[in-house]
């Protein structure tokens, strides 16, 4: 039995996941999926920034378009050091594709 606090939304439900992967304590389907995933292979969305040129600001915010394996978070962060965008960019544009061969991408979250 694993006890977790759900992080998919601000409610913070207290989940219990038994050995046969049954999730209880959740208020929604997303919570159930999160609980199971967290026990098997925890994943996180990363939000960060990358350098940008030609804009009023020096940094452009980005996020992973899907959760990425938790143990890859710092390695993925390091890759952002090598990214430099040039304005204009649009929200949703790729900043970095196929992070560490996971098929997860960093996408721009603000048009600038």
């Amino acid at each position: 039995m694993t006890e977790l606090i759900c992080i998919v939304c601000p409610m913070g439900c207290r989940l219990s996941i038994d050995d046969s992967m049954n999730v209880t304590g959740n208020s929604c389907k997303r919570g159930e999926a999160y609980g199971r995933q967290e026990v098997i292979d925890p994943k996180r969305i990363i939000t960060s920034t990358v350098r940008i040129e030609g804009s009023a600001f020096r940094r452009c915010p980005v996020k992973t378009d899907r959760p990425i394996q938790k143990h890859l978070v710092f390695e993925a962060m390091k890759l952002l050091d090598g990214v430099k965008l040039v304005s204009p960019v649009n929200a949703g544009d790729f900043a970095l594709k196929n992070i560490l061969k996971t098929e997860v991408n960093f996408v721009v979250t603000k048009s600038m």
Partner: peptide, 25 residues
Amino acid sequence: LNQCIHNGFGLHIFKEELTGPEYAA
């Protein structure tokens, strides 16, 4: 919102998880 680049915005209003700049947009 422009400096809140983390996600977690919009679950109530838009039923999806957005970052601050996306929510503002």
